[in-house]
Design a protein around this nucleic acid. Structure first.
Length: 289
DNA sequence: GCGGCGC
C-alpha cells in the first residue's frame, strides 16, 4: 500500500505525488474512537484538493478529494448522519475521472461508513469512518469538519502569482465539476493558518473593498461584490443571464441574517440526497449480505 | 485499545 510517495507529476486531478510543494491551506484533525483523521486542504498549480487520511497505529490510508467534491462530501455525510438506519443506501459520487463509493457496513464494533476512491491510475484507497455512538461523534463530527473546510475553502484565493496563468485559468482547472468558483481578491481569512504571501493588488475602483467573486449555476452567473458608498458598506449580488442583469444591494449589517436564511434552506433541502439534482450522485442498490 | 477495507 502507500502508493503515493513518488516524485512529482501524478496525473490525476490535483494530487502532486507527495504533494511536497503544495501549499497547505488548512489542516484539521479528528479523533474518532481510536482512529485519527487528518484533513488537509492543499493547493498546487493544478488546483485545490482535500486530502483525508485515516491513521491507526498500524495503518494509514488516504483519499484525495478534488475541491469541487468537498461540498458533495459534505452533502453525502449529511445524508448519512440524518437518515434513519434502514434507509442508508450506498452512494456513488463521480468527480472528474474518479469515483467515490460510499458504503455502509456493520460488525460487532458498530456501524461504519466505507469511503473508497477508485481512479484509473491509482489503486483503490479507502477510509472507514465509524458512525460513533453519540450525536456529535463519528459521522457527525466528520461532517462538521467537512462543513468547516467547505466554508473555509471559500476564503482562500487561488495563487495568482509567478506563472503567467491568470487566476481564472487556474480555477478552470481545479473546479470543473459543479459550480465553478472564481475568486477575485482575498477575503479576510481570520484565524486560519493561511500560507498566502499574496498581497492585495491596488484597487482602482473607488469604494471597492477589494472583494468580488463569481459563481456559475446552470446558465446563470452570480457576482458578489463588496462595495461602499456614503451610506455604508454593502454586498451587491448580481444575477447575470444572457444580457439581463439584476442586483440586490445588501447592507453588511444584514449579511449574517442573510447567511442564516440561506443556510436554513440549504439545510432543509439537503438532508435528503434526492434533493441534489446534479447528475453525478446516484443511489445504488442497498447492500445485501 | 480496538475493527471494518482488499485479494
Amino acid at each position: 500500500m502507500e502508493g503515493n510517495s513518488g516524485g512529482g507529476g501524478g496525473g490525476g486531478v490535483a494530487t502532486g505525488g507527495g504533494g511536497g510543494n503544495d501549499v497547505e491551506l488548512l489542516c484539521k484533525t479528528l479523533q474518532v474512537e481510536h482512529k485519527l483523521f487528518y484533513f488537509d486542504l492543499k493547493e498546487n498549480p493544478r488546483g485545490r484538493y482535500l486530502k483525508i487520511s485515516e491513521k491507526t497505529s498500524a495503518t494509514r490510508s488516504t483519499i484525495i478529494v478534488p475541491s469541487s467534491g468537498i461540498s458533495w462530501f459534505l452533502d453525502l455525510f449529511n445524508y448519512y448522519v440524518n437518515s434513519e438506519d434502514q434507509e442508508l443506501f450506498s452512494k456513488e459520487l463521480q468527480l472528474d475521472t474518479k469515483i467515490f463509493y460510499f458504503d455502509i457496513g456493520e460488525n460487532r464494533r458498530g456501524r461504519f461508513l466505507k469511503v473508497s476512491e477508485a481512479s484509473v491510475s491509482r489503486n483503490r484507497s479507502t477510509i472507514i469512518v465509524p458512525a460513533g455512538s453519540s450525536r456529535d461523534e463519528g459521522w457527525a463530527a466528520f461532517r462538521n469538519i467537512l462543513a468547516e473546510i467547505n466554508e473555509a475553502s471559500r476564503l482562500f484565493i487561488l495563487p495568482n502569482q509567478k506563472n503567467s496563468e491568470s487566476p481564472e485559468d487556474l480555477v478552470g482547472l481545479s473546479d470543473d465539476v459543479g459550480s465553478g468558483f472564481i475568486s477575485g481578491q482575498p477575503a479576510t481569512s481570520s484565524e486560519l493558518n493561511v500560507d498566502r504571501s499574496v498581497d492585495l493588488p491596488s484597487q482602482d475602483e473607488v469604494g471597492n473593498l477589494g472583494v468580488s467573486k463569481v459563481i456559475r449555476v446552470d446558465q446563470k452567473r452570480f457576482f458578489f461584490d463588496l462595495g461602499s458608498n456614503n451610506r455604508g458598506h454593502f454586498l451587491r449580488i448580481s444575477e447575470v443571464a444572457g444580457s439581463d442583469r439584476s442586483s440586490i444591494i445588501l447592507p453588511l449589517s444584514g449579511l449574517r441574517q442573510f447567511h442564516e436564511v440561506v443556510g436554513h434552506f440549504v439545510e432543509i433541502t439537503k438532508d435528503r440526497i434526492e434533493g441534489m439534482t446534479a447528475a453525478n450522485v446516484r443511489t445504488v442498490d442497498p447492500p445485501q449480505r
